[in-house]
């Protein structure tokens, strides 16, 4: 049920991001959301795509260093204070967030926040107890 995120190691040199996205494009894989964490030497590209299993194997075939990570998706009303209230809940529930990124869903108009947390079950339980919607993986891939 967790959302599978594809993470890619990128060296800091021109053309690398283009190379990765071209592989996905050629295979008809659609990118739903992405974020990049970067340092002076390298970056990590994080992707949510419509077919993570295929993306993983095609990138690997293309000689790219890739890994699969499970993240949790949280639907938040696209209003001021929306994210803060969710973070408060996770904080109170003792769920430690490694990183997060967000995008706005075309269909619902709500913000969708993707979070990498230490303990997925714990985070999900805290959110559910507070009636915050946690969309399933398929739902996120097909937004």
């Amino acid at each position: 049920m967790w959302v599978k995120q594809i993470s890619v190691f990128l060296e800091n040199k021109s053309g690398r991001l283009a190379a990765v996205t071209r592989i996905l494009g050629n295979e008809g894989i659609n990118i739903r959301a992405l974020s990049i964490a970067d340092t002076s030497d390298f970056g990590i590209l994080r992707l949510i795509v419509d077919d993570p299993a295929k993306a993983y194997s095609k990138l690997k075939e293309g000689g790219i260093t890739v890994s699969e990570t499970e993240v949790i998706a949280v639907e938040i009303p696209d209003t001021p204070g929306g994210l803060a209230s969710v973070l408060d809940i996770l904080d109170a529930g003792g769920a430690n967030i490694e990183y997060l990124y967000a995008f706005v869903s075309k269909s619902s108009g709500n913000a969708l926040v993707l979070m990498k947390v230490e303990d997925l079950d714990k985070a999900a339980a805290a959110l559910k107890a507070n009636n915050i919607p946690v969309p399933g993986a398929e739902q996120v891939y097909n937004i």
Binding site: S7, T39, I44, T65, S67, K116
Partner: peptide, 18 residues
């Protein structure tokens, strides 16, 4: 070279490896 074996998707993990 970063192999799949050591690659984790967190910056701090890779920096620690360095």
């Amino acid at each position: 070279e970063v192999s799949e074996k050591v690659f984790k998707d967190e910056v701090r993990h890779l920096e620690k490896l360095e």
